[in-house]
Amino acid sequence: MDNRIENSAVGRDVFQAGREKGGTVKPKAVPPIVWDALVEYLAGRTAGPLFVTRTDARLREPEVWKLLRRLARRAALPQAGSIHPHVLRADGITDALDAGDKLEDVQDTADHRDPRTTQRYNRRRNRLERHPGHGLAARLADRLAADGIELVDADNDQGALPGQLAVPMP
């Protein structure tokens, strides 16, 4: 929250501000909707703290927590009383991975050196409905069907067990 407008390189697609771990500065992608909101928020300001309160004081961490909780209450989120900024980071990582973004891309965006750190943020990992076995079974069924071998339907009247192979007799 210590970023100042005059120390930030702002461009339509990139925003560069602050120090990462190790003292380096890393540019961040700025989607157009975020860019437009940032330009509107800055309202022509070219110097001073990047994020400010209503009185133009630098926005500090306690104010960010209060603002986030106020917005969560307004949105009627069940966790409104306990939400904190780090939750947004975890949600962003989880949603990106759930949408199919590559782990290494999400890891890079989160500035994690180790992919295991990124995976610790993933709240949907180990969900059985996303287990690779489902995709494997579907691909196997397609290959078997292409070879003329069909999986017997569990609802058939042949008395077969679910998933039992029906091999056509010549």
Rank of each mutant, 00 (worst) to 15 (best):
residue 87 V to Q: 08
residue 143 R to S: 06
residue 114 D to C: 09
residue 97 L to R: 00
residue 81 G to N: 07
residue 19 R to Y: 11
residue 39 V to R: 09
residue 47 A to W: 09
residue 83 I to C: 01
residue 130 R to L: 10
residue 64 V to Q: 05
residue 103 L to Q: 02
residue 16 Q to S: 10
residue 24 T to D: 04
residue 108 D to L: 11
residue 169 M to H: 15
residue 124 R to T: 06
residue 10 V to S: 00
residue 105 D to T: 02
residue 157 D to N: 10
residue 111 D to H: 12
residue 123 R to Y: 06
residue 39 V to D: 08
residue 52 V to W: 06
residue 129 E to Y: 05
residue 166 A to M: 13
residue 29 A to N: 07
residue 108 D to K: 13
residue 61 E to P: 10
residue 146 A to R: 06
residue 64 V to D: 03
residue 135 G to L: 11
residue 5 I to C: 01
residue 148 G to V: 06
residue 127 R to L: 15
residue 71 L to C: 14
residue 135 G to Q: 12
residue 70 R to G: 10
residue 76 A to N: 10
residue 45 R to C: 08
residue 125 R to T: 08
residue 61 E to W: 14
residue 133 G to W: 03
residue 132 P to K: 09
residue 65 W to L: 14
residue 107 Q to N: 13
residue 23 G to V: 02
residue 117 T to Q: 10
residue 121 Y to N: 01
residue 32 P to K: 09
residue 35 W to H: 12
residue 149 I to F: 01
residue 143 R to A: 07
residue 54 R to T: 14
residue 94 T to A: 04
residue 104 E to H: 11
residue 133 G to R: 08
residue 60 R to M: 14
residue 37 A to Q: 08
residue 97 L to A: 01
residue 78 P to W: 09
residue 18 G to M: 01
residue 2 D to W: 15
residue 34 V to Y: 04
residue 37 A to E: 07
residue 42 L to F: 03
residue 114 D to M: 07
residue 45 R to A: 09
residue 132 P to F: 07
residue 75 A to W: 06
residue 19 R to N: 05
residue 62 P to I: 04
residue 132 P to M: 04
